[in-house]
C-alpha cells in the first residue's frame, strides 16, 4: 500500500459459492427429488481482490448476476464468505461487531427499511434510538440531510404515500443518520427520473466531501458513475475484469474513436473515411480505428467543407456493454 492509512476496505481472493438444489422436470425426477435432492455449486463471487482507500468513491460495475450484490452483502456482514480475506474498517464484517455496524450502512434501491404505514420521521427516530445518536448530533444531522435532500415536506407523510423518488430520498437519509464512515449503495437511483437521479448523485458527492466517508456504489446508470467515481471496479461472472481510473478503462477497452463532423449537407460519401454510424442534418458520426484517428481527421479537413469537427471516445454506456459482451465465462 502506498497510502499511510489502512484501507477502508480490503478484500483478497474473495469467494462466495452458493449451493443450489436443482429440481428436475418430470414426475419420475420429482419423486427422486423427494428422496435425494441434486444440488450444484454456483460460484457467485469467484476470487476477487481490491482495496478502497478511506474517503474514496468507487463505482462497482457489472451486469446483472455479476456478483455485485453478493460482494456488497459480504462487505456489510450479511453473508459469510466461502473463502478469502475481507476487512472493512479493520473489522471482519460477518462477525457483525456492534462498533462495526455503527459505522457502516447498506442502502438498497430495491429494498425498504422504512416502516411502510407511518411517516418516515418515526423510522428516523427509531434509528436514533438504535444507533444511540446523541440528541444534538441527531438534530444537526437530520437538519443537514433534510436540507440536502429537500425532505422537509416528506417527513410527516406516511411512507406508503410517497413517490418512488421521495421514498428513496428518505431511505438514504435513514441509512445515513448515524453518519457512517463506510457507505454501501446498491442501485440507489434505480427507477428514478433524471432530475431525481441527479439530485441523489450530488447528494452522495456532498456527503462524501463533508464526512470523508468511503463510498462503494453500484449502478446501472453510467451517468452516476461518470459523475461520482474516478475509479471503477468492474466484475463479470464473479471475476475482476478491471480496476482503475474510469479514463483508463476507456483506453483499455476501446480500439475506436468517434469523429463527429458537421458538413453543409449529407450528400458526401464518407465510407472511405470510416464506418458511418449516423448522418442527420449534415451531422455525420464516424467510427474509426484509434490508431488512424489523426490521419482521418487530417484528410477530412483537407477534402471536405468541414464546419466543425469533434473527436470523442465512444459513450461509456456503449463501452461497458462491449466489455461485458466480449468477456465469456
Amino acid at each position: 500500500m502506498e497510502t499511510q492509512n489502512p484501507p477502508a476496505v480490503h478484500i483478497k481472493d474473495l469467494r462466495k459459492v452458493y449451493v443450489v438444489s436443482q429440481q428436475e422436470s418430470g414426475a419420475k425426477a420429482a419423486l427422486r427429488g423427494l428422496v435425494r435432492r441434486r444440488s450444484i455449486e454456483v460460484p457467485a463471487v469467484d476470487g476477487i481482490s481490491f482495496d478502497l482507500a478511506p474517503g474514496e468513491i468507487v463505482g462497482f460495475l457489472g451486469p446483472n448476476g455479476a456478483g455485485k450484490t453478493t460482494t456488497l452483502k459480504m462487505l456489510s456482514g450479511l453473508l459469510h464468505p466461502t473463502a478469502g480475506e475481507v476487512k472493512v474498517l479493520g473489522y471482519t464484517p460477518w462477525k457483525r461487531d456492534k462498533p462495526f455496524l455503527r459505522q457502516i450502512t447498506l442502502v438498497m434501491g430495491q429494498r425498504n427499511q422504512l416502516v411502510w404505514d407511518i411517516p418516515a420521521i418515526h423510522s428516523f427516530e427509531l434509528n436514533r434510538a438504535i444507533y444511540r445518536i446523541p440528541p444534538d448530533i441527531y438534530r444537526s444531522t437530520l437538519r443537514e440531510l433534510t436540507d440536502l435532500l429537500e425532505l422537509e415536506p416528506l417527513l410527516n407523510k406516511p411512507v406508503r404515500n410517497l413517490s418512488l423518488g421521495e421514498r428513496m430520498k428518505c431511505e438514504i437519509a435513514a441509512g445515513l443518520l448515524h453518519r457512517p464512515g463506510m457507505v454501501f449503495l446498491d442501485e440507489p437511483t434505480i427507477g428514478l427520473d433524471v432530475t431525481m437521479q441527479r439530485r441523489i448523485r450530488s447528494f452522495i458527492a456532498e456527503y462524501n466531501q463533508r464526512f470523508g466517508a468511503t463510498v462503494l456504489l453500484t449502478s446501472h446508470y453510467m451517468a452516476d458513475v461518470e459523475a461520482l467515481c474516478r475509479r471503477v471496479v468492474v466484475i463479470h461472472h464473479g471475476r475482476l475484469l478491471f480496476d482503475g481510473d474510469l479514463s483508463s478503462l476507456v483506453q483499455k477497452f476501446t480500439d475506436h474513436k468517434t469523429i463527429v463532423v458537421r458538413l453543409g449537407d449529407c450528400h458526401a460519401d464518407l465510407k472511405e473515411y470510416g464506418e458511418v454510424v449516423s448522418c442527420v442534418d449534415g451531422l455525420v458520426t464516424l467510427r474509426v480505428p484509434k490508431s488512424g484517428t489523426a490521419q482521418v481527421t487530417e484528410r477530412l479537413l483537407a477534402d471536405l467543407p468541414v464546419i466543425d469537427l469533434l473527436v470523442e471516445d465512444p459513450p461509456i454506456e456503449e463501452l461497458i456493454e462491449r466489455v461485458f459482451a466480449q468477456e465469456k465465462p
Binding site: K73, S76, G77, L78, R96, K98, P99, L101, R102, I104, T105, L106, R111, Q113, I130, Y131
Partner: peptide, 8 residues
C-alpha cells in the same frame, strides 16, 4: 437483512 445490520 436490515435488522441484522443494526447494532441491536
Amino acid at each position: 437483512s436490515f435488522a441484522l445490520l443494526k447494532p441491536v
